[in-house]
Design a protein around this nucleic acid. Structure first.
Lengths: 352, 352
DNA sequence: AGCATGATTGTAATCGATTACACGTGTAAC
DNA sequence: GTTACACGTGTAATCGATTACAATCATGCT
């Protein structure tokens, strides 16, 4: 079953069939109708490989992520795919598994399949790999990876806004001893979140205590370990802001393990709002970073780059927003806390 | 950059280059070496579309799942992909989103891309769609979907084993009033799990109490709601077996909300062992259903079907196994329970 | 009628591989 | 010294679309 058989049945040339399939406007209405009937009757569908080979366009977008088992990504992938399918395109997803050599394989796959665009949401891609993509004229869009480039698009996240909201929320509940568990400092976006936190503290007029800032790894175990460290302090934080939800989940586990309660003894805020966060008990207060917004912007960046070749890259900013659930509460009276150093509870602090 | 340029540089024909790329054994060693050097020097890689068009084989496997945001699937996808990449193949993943009409699109995609095989882990595919795949000579493997078919392979799950282990564990802890929260009864595998539970009870000599069996939906909210229902009973279950981990997580949330503790007041066992289960607090006791085993078997079913065309479908069985963590404990004294109907606490029961 | 014009449609080259078949060449058997 | 055969390589058809260009057709205008 191929285009020739359709052409024969519809009494037209293959060119006309092809034009009809591709919605060219230069096919007379009733010819097109005849072709469509033939397609229907023969149950024909075009061979994707032949189309791609003939036209040079694959109708495929690539999406490079770190790791599909990281719960942040599936939703992103799904939104991106859904939007793509809606526009008659498809998506191949490739995981770098956080490794640079796997990243090269990912890029290779994209090149071999002649994708029409690549959305990159990982920091493992070395400049020379990006160059390979660019030099093949493939539109790129970076998601939260802030790579500057005139011909590439960027979807940026306004971390400051989200983190400001989180800190303000905690401050309004009376917290001032706020701990922060960061992501791995090797990850640019983790560094940005940390900076945003420091800036938020400053803005809120809270002086920085270095011992309250601990590095995690954006995974549950990292959150757990970082929290262990924080719980060793003589003067415990009354609230924790975590660089992502998994970290927050780990921290909460650790807090419980020490016989403390969330949010009565310690408030916790996460970041991302992964699906499970709302379903935990207690439901996690967190800063939502909408994956569907990100995916949408990314798709449209590529789509318009395809429509208008040679156009400059666009820039989009997505705004995270605080979602208050049940892991944050009014700051408790210090005496209710374990391990609290009563000597440090000066009147001045109590007054605040 | 194409195969001709490589041929020119290596002073051979395109046929020889092609043979070298495909590892044909009928190329003299030093000719092959010369070709390889040319490929290297020119930074050449073959055009996937042309290869697929010319050979009829796409080196692509399709994987059809219900929903990538269901945490059961990402690991499966990853394992399947990893194995495929290891064998020089690639994978396209397609979500049915639990809808039959989306399923048709998925099958269409597979057909259009001329995949060399499809692994199906969803029950949305209607027989006529399967027929379309089969009639195109595409090898199929069903994962936990138990479709009989002479020419298709199956990866089956020995639910009885896993559920027996779970029930035995609970019984050994002194539980006999064991509740079960099933998946949606429309889902074959959910029905199988339920049957396995009933059979396990029988084997353990525990008489069935219908009110302890409630239907969920394999999602967190379903687990929560089902548990609410169970907590209305005058005689509470002391242990709950859930049809999957999400259900268990929902149930635990509900239990906590009622001021009861897990496992001191109620023991809970999940099923699947999704990644987050180990990281919750308390870590969930569950029955592990290894996604990597399933993916491996599935891949090899397709791979060998490709190697030996015309061979009959194979059948694999994967064995789930109980993973004891912290949501199960020795059955408590009934008087410690809320809402317990003291009248029913007969000496006979206490004696067991 | 003759012609310009724009709208449709057809012809055939093209994309970049794979592979059936043909063609040399060297070696062993007779 | 043929003949046969295996091995290595090249020639060219083929896969199934797309699309530049050519051809045809209908229409309105002079």
């Amino acid at each position: 079953m191929n285009i020739q058989e359709v052409a024969r049945r519809a009494q037209v040339s293959t060119a006309t069939v092809s034009r009809t399939i591709n919605g060219s406007d230069k096919v007379k209405a009733n010819t097109a109708e005849r072709v469509r009937r033939a397609i229907e009757a023969l149950n024909y569908f075009p061979n994707t490989n032949a189309r791609a080979l003939g036209s040079g366009r694959s109708r495929l977008y690539g999406l490079i992520i770190s790791d599909i088992t990281n719960p942040f990504f599936p939703e992103l992938v799904k939104s991106f795919e859904d939007t793509a399918v809606l526009h008659g395109l498809e998506v191949i997803v490739s995981n770098t598994s956080y490794k640079a050599d796997r990243a090269e394989l990912c890029v290779q796959r994209m090149l071999e399949r002649k994708v029409d665009g690549v959305a990159i949401m990982t920091s493992e891609l070395e400049p020379q790999l990006l160059e390979r993509l660019k030099s093949n004229g493939i539109p790129l869009v970076f998601l939260d990876t802030g790579t500057v480039g005139e011909d590439t698009s960027n979807v940026l996240v306004n971390y400051s806004k989200g983190i400001d909201e989180a800190v303000d929320h905690l401050v309004s509940l009376g917290h001032e001893r706020i701990g922060f568990i960061s992501g791995p400092m090797t990850l640019p976006s983790a560094r940005t979140r940390r900076e945003a936190f420091l800036e938020s503290l400053r803005r809120a007029g809270i002086s920085l205590r270095k011992e309250l800032i601990v590095e995690g790894n954006h995974r549950i175990d990292g959150g757990r370990m970082a929290m262990e460290e924080l719980l060793q302090l003589t003067s415990l934080p009354t609230a924790i802001l975590a660089s992502n939800d998994l970290t927050a989940i780990g921290a909460i586990g650790s807090i419980h393990q020490h016989g403390l309660r969330v949010p009565q003894d310690v408030s916790v805020i996460g970041f991302d709002d992964i699906e499970i966060s709302a379903a935990l008990y207690p439901p996690l207060t967190t800063v939502r970073l909408s994956r569907s917004h990100i995916a949408d912007r990314a798709f449209h960046a590529l789509f318009s780059a395809n429509r208008e070749p040679g156009s400059r890259g666009a820039e989009y900013i997505v705004q995270p927003e605080l979602v208050v659930r049940d892991t944050t509460a009014v700051r408790i009276k210090p005496r209710a806390l374990h391990r609290i150093d009563k000597g440090k509870m000066s009147a001045k602090k109590q007054a605040r």
